[in-house]
Design a protein around this nucleic acid. Structure first.
Lengths: 227, 227
DNA sequence: CGGTATCCGCAAAGATACTG
DNA sequence: CAGTATCTTTGCGGATACCG
């Protein structure tokens, strides 16, 4: 019984890249891992974040990833009584690769179809991708972003940025907004002052903290479609 | 019907990673790009390096990649009268991502099936992936590797390593060997002296050059399969 | 030889209904 | 909520026939 069907369609090449694709190359797989980068998720939350995936396909991907030690299935303690999926150490090593792939793919986003799905968690992941780690921040700062997917924690310390789903215990600044406004702020098409004045952003804390947050990133301007 | 609708199965997500996968996420696509990393290839050479791919699938992938400016189709000058496919600048930006993915996947190579295909070009690509760029080499050196796929050029200058298919104009050392022997050398399961003595490697130049070549890399030992 | 086009069988993926 | 079962659709691999 050489491993179940998890290797059914292996490329069978003596090559690290081909082997990596045997593990994470199937359709949807890398998007599952992308969504798990911000923290553990339940089956239903994963499915909700992957519009178009069938529950059977999601089940198959999770089983495959679990068998290959990329994802771990964990039972939550009593109050919740649920199951969550989270990255293993091996799976977490994909983070810089996924971020680099996301930066690369951003250039092609102008070609996206008209009816595009959007999730604030993807925008938050993009913040991780476009964080400018050549900057060192003077003192550690925590932001809470309240977006449509729920609260997220962004923390800057020295030159590292950590991002996770969920609210922090303490935030230096809480901001409530929508994806489009946040993206406009990050691409400098909207100033913090404008955003607050129009009510597109609601702050609990000082507006300078919003400016400092935005300054941590270097988002590219999106190009229009060419084809 | 079915005109080149290259976005037929787009994830349609406002996300750089999802967009990248719209471009290079289809089966075989990243392996096509891997093989093009070492230099332009003809259709037939690509097909030969991707055992199992159908010629129709390869055609579809190349058309897709060409339409999205990842690969460029170029006609060779007269003596050859052929067509080659080569990476565009945009496509070449995938190199560090593919190398990182290959390093990541190497850990899972113990699970590969029994009948694995092997190509020396993949081993040469792995040399690029496992090059230790913390080293600076005293004086620029060029090696010619004569392997089953043909000759390859490896050049070290300062702390950069370049690798390409084809023989160099001048090589400081020419070595002829097989994939298995080269891999054993790179993983220190075989010493240069042993390899030369047994005839597994033939040198045209000084053996110290082989030691210096091997010293440029930090290949991991392959783990045995667990499940 | 360097592709392209077509048919065919299979396995994966999408959709949805259903169950613990 | 967390999946499983079932059915349909689509993509893929393989073979082959065709064109420059």
């Amino acid at each position: 019984m050489s491993s179940p069907d998890t290797m059914a369609r292996s490329y069978a090449q003596l090559c690290g890249i081909a082997t990596a694709l045997d593990v994470v190359g199937d359709r949807w797989t890398l998007l599952v891992l992308r969504d798990l980068l911000l923290g553990p998720l339940r089956f239903g939350d994963l499915a909700e974040g992957l519009p178009g995936i069938g529950t059977n396909t999601l089940t198959a991907r999770l089983k495959h990833l679990e068998a290959l030690d990329v994802v771990h299935r964990r039972l939550l303690p009593l109050p919740d009584r649920g199951t969550v999926y989270e990255l293993t150490d091996y799976g977490r090593e994909l983070e810089p690769i996924l971020m680099a792939l996301g930066r690369w793919g951003t250039r092609s986003m102008g070609r996206l179809p008209r009816d595009v799905a959007s999730r604030s968690r993807w925008l938050v992941a993009a913040m991780l991708a476009f964080h400018d780690d050549s900057q060192r921040i003077a003192q550690p700062t925590t932001w809470e972003l309240r977006l449509s997917d729920g609260p997220f924690t962004v923390r800057a310390e020295d030159s590292t940025l950590t991002v996770a789903a969920g609210a922090p215990d303490h935030a230096d600044l809480i901001l409530t907004t929508d994806d489009e406004t946040l993206h406009q702020l990050l691409t400098h098409r909207l100033t913090p002052a404008e955003a607050v004045t129009t009510g597109a952003v609601t702050l609990d804390g000082d507006i300078s903290g919003l400016s400092r947050l935005i300054g941590l990133f270097t988002f590219p301007a999106l190009e229009a479609s060419a084809t």
